[in-house]
Write a protein that binds this DNA or RNA. Sequence first.
DNA 1: GCGCAAATTTCAAACGTTTGCATTTTTCGG
DNA 2: CCGAAAAATGCAAACGTTTGAAATTTGCGC
Lengths: 342, 342
Amino acid sequence: MADADLSPPDGPVRTITDLARLAGVSAGTVSRALAGNSLVNARTRERIQQLARAHGFQLNQMASNLRRQRTGVVGVAIPLGHDRRQQISDAFFMTLLGHLADELTEHGHDLMLRRVIPDRDEDWLARFTGSGMVDGLIVIGQSDQFARIEAAAAHYLPMVVWGNHQEGQRHCVVGTDNRLGGRLAAERLLAAGATKLAFFGDTAPIEFAARFAGASDVAAQAGVPIIACPTPLAVDRMPGEIARHLARHASRIDGIFAATDTLAVACLKQLHERGLAVPERMRLVGFDDLPVAGQTTPPLTSIRQDIAAGARGLVDLLLRRLAGENTESLVLPPELVVRATA
Amino acid sequence: MADADLSPPDGPVRTITDLARLAGVSAGTVSRALAGNSLVNARTRERIQQLARAHGFQLNQMASNLRRQRTGVVGVAIPLGHDRRQQISDAFFMTLLGHLADELTEHGHDLMLRRVIPDRDEDWLARFTGSGMVDGLIVIGQSDQFARIEAAAAHYLPMVVWGNHQEGQRHCVVGTDNRLGGRLAAERLLAAGATKLAFFGDTAPIEFAARFAGASDVAAQAGVPIIACPTPLAVDRMPGEIARHLARHASRIDGIFAATDTLAVACLKQLHERGLAVPERMRLVGFDDLPVAGQTTPPLTSIRQDIAAGARGLVDLLLRRLAGENTESLVLPPELVVRATA
DNA sequence: GCGCAAATTTCAAACGTTTGCATTTTTCGG
DNA sequence: CCGAAAAATGCAAACGTTTGAAATTTGCGC
């Protein structure tokens, strides 16, 4: 029986049964051997693993998954609200996605990415969670789906969402304290000498709304005005909209809080074109502290979100939920990074 | 039998068998009904679908996949060479990934993302293709895995790779004509008045090597010198390295071809800090034409890759390969986008 | 050698679908 | 109404693995 591997070279060994025949044992033993189960004799185990390597055997994951009722795959859903085209190419989301991939891989999970357009697809959440294809779900951004997510959270435990934390919400969320971030931004603008503020960004997503609210808190407290300038994040419409805002309001403001670094960079460009000196004539603070923030001229002052920590948090909480724990939300502290624009 | 749905509310209906019991038919019929198979009577079909909706029934994909021997999932592998941390956060790759997600979703496929570190994981390709988890594979970037990919292509057909096309290669690739792109860049630099060129970028990845080669062609033909300045793409080391290159070579060059817009943006910043006027004293051309290119000051002249077209090509070719066709590679034309830096 | 426990291995039943084939029901021309 | 063809449904065998329980082998003290 030691020379089983000297048998004539037969067809490709695809299934565990093929391998069993080759090794002269039963399928069950092979399965256990490959899993490193100590129930099977160390020598047989080694011999089988050897054989598997030699024949380039790959376990069929589908079958394994079906039987074990788990897949080792975590779903990552990116709901796209109205601003369809924007979000997925947004540097922030992409960086988060990259870190998520790292973090999940590290823990032996695969990542199944799905972009969903909630308007077109009523039950995108149920479809994903109920498919049996994923063990758990990470949702990147609440978009305008807060209610739906909240509803799903009642039945489906292994789900963690990146976004903003609301008082008393049911679903587990990881995200930056956007309101605090907004305060930090406004405080910095004031400290840099601004006396009349503007907020650039769409206030529909609750993250952005919270940032604006934080800035408004500070402005109210200091008795300075702050005006909201709704600006789309879609890359093609952004510059025009900013130009329009500046044309209307530039004379009435001397400090801008941009909801996003991407927005801030676009602002910087428009300000430059209008000949408004930054930071002398106009202070500017962004949000996210993307790599690009350090590379603009002048370098951008921004509110840093620790994306890597966010990804770690998402994965950590999800794994704990997969283990049955009912985790609390995680709110990360934002951090002011002072460069040259404010 | 019409009032089957008036039966007492029992446990959740998870399996097709539950649904069958509820509908008073066999599992087979339910399966066919849900698939819209015309073998089953239109009325029963409708009734079953109704029932499924009412109970929020979700087909178990794992079981379905196992039985049908296909998953509807396309794997996307991102091999990370030496420059680990860089690539996945690189705006170009991320944008491509976003478009891929779009395009695959459009065709009813899901996307399974996997970052692989070839050094640590010898047979990352076999593991992915042999797992039975994916119907086909898209590899983003050849990195330093050309040989391994080439080997896999011999056995595994449904695979398409983003990258550079080599004469006589076996695996199907989609990518920009990097050499031509390099030529366009160099030609533009010369047209803008440059007389001594430099190439900034790592020439190890074959895409970049081809860009450099294209530029060198033009330089040689025009009789102007071009020097290669190896620059890492890792965001933390990039600025320092650029500064070092400029300190050494700035006096000897008046035109820079950056392998990437990300690199070009960093160059722009360093040039500004050294007080070298762009484009008067130093012409600069980037590559990719990322959104950021239009937002720098001055706006960046760049070589445009049509990322969306690339994604469409990758998916289209993969689908055709899944259908059994043996497709040729697709080489996309780059396009010069003239802005203000050259 | 015997008996008993421990160590291995085999057996067979799942996991939830899909699908070829057999079987039942319906339809319809005569 | 009969019989045959057509339409609809049921049956049961896969898909390839895992795993509890049963069966077999091995080890060991006496």
